[in-house]
Structures are given as C-alpha cells and as structure tokens.
C-alpha cells in the first residue's frame, strides 16, 4: 500500500466575526474570530481560520467563595472591576475582557442598569481591548441591563448576552440597533443551538454578529458533554448546516474553578486549579472553541502559548 495523505475537504466555512471597533485614532483594538474550513488546527486539510482568542473574565462584585489561588492574585483589585480589567489587558495579556454583571442579580446587589452600563463603558475605555458583557441570568433584569449596556457602548462592537430561545428579542434588537454582537446560548444541545441561531436569523441578526455558547462543563463536571456537542456542532456546520456555521465561546475559568479539585489541590509548584482551568480550555480548543474565557493569569498565559504551539510546528505530513 503506498502512502498518500488523506485530506478532508468540507463544503462550508465558519463565518468570520469581528469583535471590538477598530476605529482609527482611539486605540481600540479589535479581534477577528472564526473563519475555519477545517477541524481545529488541522491546517493540512485547508485554511483553519483565525487562531482562537484568549480573554479573561472580570466580575462586577467580589465573588463569595474565592479559592486561594484566585484570592491571592485578584485580592488587591477585586473590589475595583475597572482596575481588575486593566490588569488583565495590560499585565496578563488578555485579548479581550469578559465582564460578568453578577451584581445586577436582584438577589445579589441588584445593581442598576445605568451603573452596569457605565461600568461596561469604563472597562472598554480603560483596557482598549474588545469587550464581552454577560448578564446575571435573571431574564427580566438582563433585558433592561443589557439594553442599557448596548446603548451606552453604542458602536463599540461588544459581544453581548447570552440570549436563549426563551429570551432573545429585546437583547438582540438592542444589540443590533447599537452595532453589537450577541451570544446565542443553548443548554448543551445541538438542536437547541440550531433553534436559537435560526430565531436570531429570522429576527434579522446577520451571521457575522452571532457567537454561539453551547454551555461549558468544567473538567470532570460535564466537560465530555460540552466537548461532544461542540464537535457535533462544528462538524454539522462544516458539512453544510449554515445556521451553525458560527464561532463558539467557552467559559473555562468560571466552570473550572467551581470544581472541588480546583479549590483543594496543591497550591505551590504546579497549582492544581490552574491546571484544571488550562486543561478545560485545552480540551475544548480541540472541539472547536474560538473564544476562550479564562480567570487565572497563569492559565491564560499557558493556553495562549499552547494555541501558538498548536498552530505552529515543523513536521511535514
């Protein structure tokens, strides 16, 4: 049998999405994500699109149960989200910031829509990198908060959400009017992912303004489900399911640090929580993650390095 490398050719390509406004003069950077026509990093098959981008998560309120490795790093800035975000972008190389507006939750601090929106704009101005804004999970509150965020940050091409099949009109409409993108979320389910994307298309949201969130499970806590759902979504998209031909975002830091093993492992030398977070991300990169949201600076750094190593290499096949 003579050897001839088998190359996989897919008929479709993942849409290319631009986050952040590259307005000349104001220093605001922007990112392009998506564009793959192969499975992740399989560049011998064809153009594998933009490299995944690695961002960091910032909370508007100090988290309740902060494990020591996070407390040690963020302790000094945790009370000041703008400063925290600035550190992420300037010191720790976050390619984008993901602002989680937990404090908007009526059961937490019930922060006002105005306060949330001002915070989002301050973070944008302070960091100069693109911004992802997440609501608190309370549908009614998120509708007003994210609408206000959209208006206040108009024109800055933020990625806003999540929206679900049960709650998408208000947020998506506000995002479109103000030139943002939306996160289409589904609960670990290919068909429901398709459903929300089709609903957004019907509402007039273009393919270049949607990023999918298939819901992240952390290492040892549902990762395998997310992994397979993402693989199925990506394969379906490349094979021609155009409603799913969109980039995907995963929240690795948030999910990984919920794990008991992340909180309880050794914290000197190799920090088990950092490894937990990095491996959650590294694995989901293989399933097609285009935007990876991290928490710990060290995990962020190694995953960024890892992406370069995955894309590089010198071996001819």
């Amino acid at each position: 049998m003579s050897f001839e490398l088998h190359r996989e050719k897919f008929p479709c390509r993942i849409s290319e999405v631009e986050i952040g406004a590259g307005v000349a003069g104001n220093g605001q950077r922007f990112l392009q994500v998506g564009g793959a026509s192969t499975l992740p990093f399989l560049s011998f098959d064809g153009p594998s699109g933009h490299l995944p981008v690695i961002g960091m998560e910032v909370w508007d309120v100090v988290p309740e149960l902060w494990p020591a490795p996070l407390e040690n790093i963020f302790g000094p800035v945790a009370g000041d989200p703008v400063e925290w975000a600035r550190h992420c972008a300037r010191e720790w190389g976050a390619e984008f910031i993901c602002l989680r507006l937990r404090g908007a939750d009526p059961e937490l601090s019930d922060a006002s829509p105005e306060a949330c929106a001002t915070l989002a704009r301050d973070v944008l101005d302070a960091t100069g990198v693109p911004l992802v804004v997440l609501g608190c999970g309370n549908d009614a509150k998120d509708n007003v908060v994210l609408q206000k965020v959209s208006e206040t940050c108009a024109g800055r091409r933020c990625l806003i959400g999540p929206v679900t099949s049960d709650n998408y009109r208000t947020i998506a409409a506000a995002a479109m009017v103000n030139g943002h993108l939306v996160i289409a979320q589904s609960p670990v389910d290919v068909n429901m992912q398709k459903q929300i994307c089709v609903l957004l298309n019907d509402l007039g949201v273009p393919q270049t303004q949607i990023v999918m969130d298939p819901t992240t499970g952390g290492l040892g806590y549902g990762l395998e489900y997310t992994y397979s759902v993402m693989e199925r979504v990506r394969l379906a998209a490349l094979q021609g399911e155009s409603s799913l031909a969109l980039p995907m975002i995963v929240f690795c830091g948030f999910e990984a640090w919920r794990a008991k093993e992340a909180k309880t492992g050794p914290t000197d030398g190799v920090v088990q929580g950092v490894a937990w977070e990095a491996l959650t991300a590294g694995t989901l990169l293989q399933a097609g993650a285009d935007m990876v949201v991290m928490l710990h600076p060290e995990a962020t750094r190694v995953v960024r390095e890892h992406v370069k190593v995955l894309a590089g290499g010198e071996m001819a096949l």
Binding site: L5, H6, F44, V309, L310, G312, G313, M315, L317
Partner: peptide, 24 residues
C-alpha cells in the same frame, strides 16, 4: 514529534486513514 500541533496532526492523520480509508 515535539510540538503539540505536530503530534495532533500526525495522530489525526493516522487515525483517520486507519478508520476511513482502512489503510492497513
């Protein structure tokens, strides 16, 4: 291979040819 990308691509090519092409 040394770099993760090389290992990934080599292992994928091998697995794929074994399963899809029955390349003995």
């Amino acid at each position: 291979a040394k770099a993760a990308g090389d290992v990934l691509r080599a292992a994928t090519a091998i697995r794929r040819m074994a399963i899809k092409k029955r390349f003995r």
